[in-house]
Amino acid sequence: MRREEIKVCVMRVGGTNCDAETQRAFQDLGVQAEVLHVNELVKQGNLLDYNVLVFPGGFSFGDYVRSGVIFARSLSVKLGKEIETFVDEGRPILGICNGFQILVEYGLLPGFEGVTAYPEATLTTNVPQGFKCQWIHLKNENKGKCPFTSKIPKGKVLRMPIAHGEGRFLFPVEKEQQMLQKLIDNDMMVFSYCDENGNVADGKYPTNPNGSFHDIAGICNREGTIFGLMPHPERAMYWWQQPDWTRQKQMAQYGDGKLVFESLIDHLTKKF
């Protein structure tokens, strides 16, 4: 598949608000990316015209009840069939921030045994509590299954901003060790919070900014095709988005967030 043939659907609904910059990141890398309201997709019935589905950040339906839950439920009613096909065919799905919350609430992530009817994990209120907008460090933990990090060496430290109030990834307490083991065994760990030298946060604030279990910042499903993360790669796309670019004499043209988008596109151009 040629780069310019790749079609990305950035799906939005009331309260989605990171769609434009997410679209821009894809377009800048030479693929087609469209922002589509879920109502439009339902009306046109054209979700399967796209190769990639992206849930960008925001506060879908105000994140009332619990982050992502209303959108996830309404989506499974409105577009459940198409999404099932999307997943079965191994077409990539990306969820950023609220998008990650939606994927978890939908049962698409972690997806140990495929899509589940009820969520197997949660992204809940930060510890310490409160919304936080800050640049953090991430370590790539993936050994090669996740196409979204295919161009990122394992162990590489990346920088991206977070901006959320509910990003603490948790498994049910009684199963957490067992589920963690599954994540690791199946190479579903993707990003974890670390310090600038790549040392794991080990739950310590502020290196781990939200109290996530095992410093989890991003995971993929068993097949690697569905990827969710709390940090915002689309806000770490260009040099001028970096928090300290005025300190640098020479700035790389792109930020680390680009690697996520580039990895995916590279994977698609090779695979299909």
């Binding site: 990171c18 936080k132 907008c133 915002h232 001028w240 005025t246």
Partner: peptide
């Protein structure tokens, strides 16, 4: 920090 000052990805000086 409780205000998102980066959404839209266009804040060059924070």
């Amino acid at each position: 920090r409780t205000y998102d000052h980066e959404v839209k990805g266009n804040t060059t000086l924070k």
